[in-house]
């Protein structure tokens, strides 16, 4: 931190000012000229929080994707199918048991098992053959998409949230003052999104701890850096591969439940989330978990701010970020060259 400030005094000041402005715009009551210039504070705060929660969802999907890539150099283009499959399983479990919470562990397990099956039956046979793996995973995603269309049809599925999660909750942030009485108006925000945000943070921190503070994490990191050397030390690398693939797949499945809760599950969502994961991972840096978090946050914020402040070009914004990153830092923001 200190070294960064010493080496980049200019950028440090810019970042500091930006953070100060952001904090001020979140907590202060906006003056009229600002409201006139960029609209009500409520819109800004909502876009900010929605961007972060959407980023949380993208992070859940992309972190498994990036982990699998980082370790196995395997671009799994069927990752979106795992998301969609997880969403359908989550719906069935929640519908059958009436419990939203139960859907998460069950979905995680079911999709993780599918991931293990994919790793053992498919990827293990074509290790190191990038092009072949890519083509095979595209094929698998098409087959899975059609199978799911066959089973669940084209309908839209929305996973029911429990009573305590539906509806908005009043936060402590002030969006404005009532003209008549002068009382502050507080921001109302959907409860379910707050819970999803909290869950994503917990999972993110948990993953970081797992990777950086445990023996398994050490193995995975060693595998990412140098697979051959790790094998030479006597570690059963195949077992590590299977575990990571299962974990990554399970996360994608759980993300499907999250997505099915505050968005919806339907055919086509698989490719949408595959594309989102690819963009997130390219922006953040292939194989890096903090990179996935940063990339997901950036893309989520870009989508939400874009949708309210420049709706016509919102779609372009995401890809603009990708192009900029590829042009100036091709390995991704936190990726290693």
């Amino acid at each position: 931190m200190r070294r960064f400030v010493e080496r980049n005094p200019f950028w440090s000041i810019v970042i500091l000012v930006a953070v100060a402005v952001l904090v001020w715009s979140i907590f202060a009551v906006w003056p009229d000229w600002l409201v006139d210039a960029i609209g009500r504070k409520k819109i800004f705060l909502n876009a900010l929080f929605n961007g972060i929660t959407l980023g949380a969802l993208y992070f859940l999907v992309a972190s498994g994707f990036t982990l699998i890539f980082g370790l196995m150099r395997n671009v799994n283009l069927a990752h979106g199918s795992l998301y969609l499959f997880g969403g359908y399983i989550g719906y069935e479990i929640a519908d059958w048991s009436g419990s939203w919470l139960l859907a998460f562990p069950v979905t995680f397990l079911v999709v993780a098992v599918l991931g293990v099956a994919l790793q053992l039956a498919v990827f293990r046979r074509m290790q190191g053959q990038d092009l072949r793996q890519t083509l095979v995973t595209i094929g698998i995603s098409i087959v899975l998409a059609d199978l799911m269309l066959w089973i669940w049809g084209g309908d839209f599925f929305q996973i029911l949230t429990p009573e305590w999660l539906s509806g908005p909750v009043e936060t402590f942030l002030v969006t404005g003052v009532k003209r008549s009485s002068g009382d502050p108006i507080f921001l109302k925000y959907p409860m379910v999104r707050l819970v999803i945000l909290a869950a994503a943070i917990v999972i993110g921190v948990g993953m970081w701890l797992l990777l950086n503070r445990t023996r398994i994490g050490m193995l995975v990191r060693a595998g990412v850096d140098d697979r051959e050397m790790l094998t030479a030390t006597g570690v059963n690398i195949q077992l590590v591969f299977v575990a990571v693939f299962a974990f990554g797949a399970g996360l994608a499945g759980m993300a499907g439940v999250v997505g099915g809760t505050f968005q919806s599950i339907a055919p086509g969502e698989d490719t949408r989330f595959l594309l989102a994961s690819l963009v997130v991972v390219i922006v953040g840096g292939m194989g890096s978990i903090p990179g996935a978090a940063l990339g997901a946050l950036l893309i989520g914020l870009a989508e939400q701010f874009g949708s309210v402040y420049m709706p016509t070009y919102a779609v372009v914004l995401t890809f603009l970020i990708m192009v900029l990153v590829l042009a100036f830092r091709p390995q991704g923001i936190l990726g290693r060259a």
Partner: peptide, 17 residues
Amino acid sequence: RFWVPLGTKDFASIIAA
């Protein structure tokens, strides 16, 4: 008049606006 791209999945910010 608000216009969103076909295939928009997250309307939360537009709803706030």
